[in-house]
Nucleic acid binder design. Structure first.
Lengths: 202, 202
DNA sequence: AAACTTAGATACCGATCGGTGCAAAACAAA
DNA sequence: TTTGTTTTGCACCGATCGGTATCTAAGTTT
């Protein structure tokens, strides 16, 4: 069949693009968008600048793809938390996931979605804005989940899904900052527990 | 009197060093340590590179001095909060100050102590570590204040000053991240209120 | 085999990075 | 004024920034 095509024409690339992207994610995670130079990135990825540009576009697109990978990998706890049966379990799992991901041995301390770029010069604006959108998206999902909980009677009628979502996101962001500063997993889990102690209904 | 000296010898500098430092602080606040270029800094300060180096040393020392100024200016709410008569008022004032400083019109959104440098490349490591120490210092002061509150019976005997300090600092850090992402003052004050709803004794 | 297409390595691009050398200018002390 | 000291403006430093041109190697297709 002329429709089937098992291999693309031309010389096949000599590296695993997924593995290279994983390494790029780690560098962005550890050094931030502006702090991660192409030399550091391609060095960790094990490929040349030219191969990186051919496979991923440019530094900004590489960052976006690394962020996608982060979302599906280290930050997948968020999607899993949203599927918990009750709002309380959603909040608990979200914060617990945040704690464990920001303090995982072998990975940079903190959260790529926070320290990737909070404040930036002109060259980092796009990355910063992408991360703002990323965090907003996470908050939106929490809000919709909590709204559903209100609708289902899982949360009291007076509960404010918008506020609850922002509250959980704020604590998670704070946990990320604390982790970047060297806080340990158990210290942060205690903070997460404390933050949930007033979960409605109190 | 040969002791008195009204003017230093040599040509007097043609700019106000305090005012220049204030402007440098604003640039670091908005763009972060790595994102703030010497061109942007000296441009905002209204002086040349040479004058900046003569007056402040280098970029790293300028950042340290800008951070000191930030501590005594925009972040002075922290020291004021620590002087409140009760632990509850300390916590309330600390978070309220955090909210108002990170969302002050005319100033960059967020907190210099957080977004100045969370993750950095080699050139920004010193600034990042300085900010970690800065946040640790703030947490230490909160912890000592809460320990005093326990000793004085202002907090219940079972209260954990270490945990309470880290909890408040975590929420403040989260507020800073949220503010950097465009959250409004009233939204964040609601979050601060929610975070204090389970203040001991519950 | 030849023709075609793409990956990889090297060397390089202009721009910008943080930081300086130099000489004119502006003040105090003499 | 003369001398000494410091600031200032400008040009410039080597290094690194993100991004590319070029040529060769390694595959597929015909």
């Amino acid at each position: 069949m002329e429709i089937t095509r098992k291999a693309p024409i031309g010389r096949p690339r000599g590296f695993d693009a997924d593995e290279a992207l994983e390494q790029a994610m780690m560098v962005f995670w550890e050094q931030g968008y502006e702090g991660a130079s192409l030399t550091a990135l391609t060095g960790a990825m094990g490929i040349t600048r030219k191969s990186m540009y051919a496979a991923f576009g440019n530094k900004e697109e590489l960052f976006r793809k690394a962020l996608e990978r982060y979302t599906e990998g280290p930050a997948a706890y968020a999607a899993r938390a949203l599927e918990k049966p009750s709002a309380r379990e959603v909040a608990t799992a979200f914060l617990a996931g945040s704690v464990s991901t920001t303090t995982r041995p072998g990975c940079p301390a903190g959260c790529l979605g926070v320290q990737g770029s909070l404040a930036a010069g002109d060259s980092g604006r796009a990355a910063r804005d992408a991360l703002i959108a990323w965090r907003d998206d996470g908050r939106d999902r929490l809000r919709h989940r909590f709204q559903r909980a209100v609708d289902e009677g899982d949360l009291p009628p007076g509960a404010d899904p918008e506020l609850l979502a922002r509250y959980i996101m704020t604590v998670a962001n704070g946990i990320a900052v604390q982790a970047a500063g060297g806080a340990t997993r158990s210290e942060l889990q205690e903070v997460a527990d404390a933050a949930l102690r007033n979960w409605p209904p109190v």
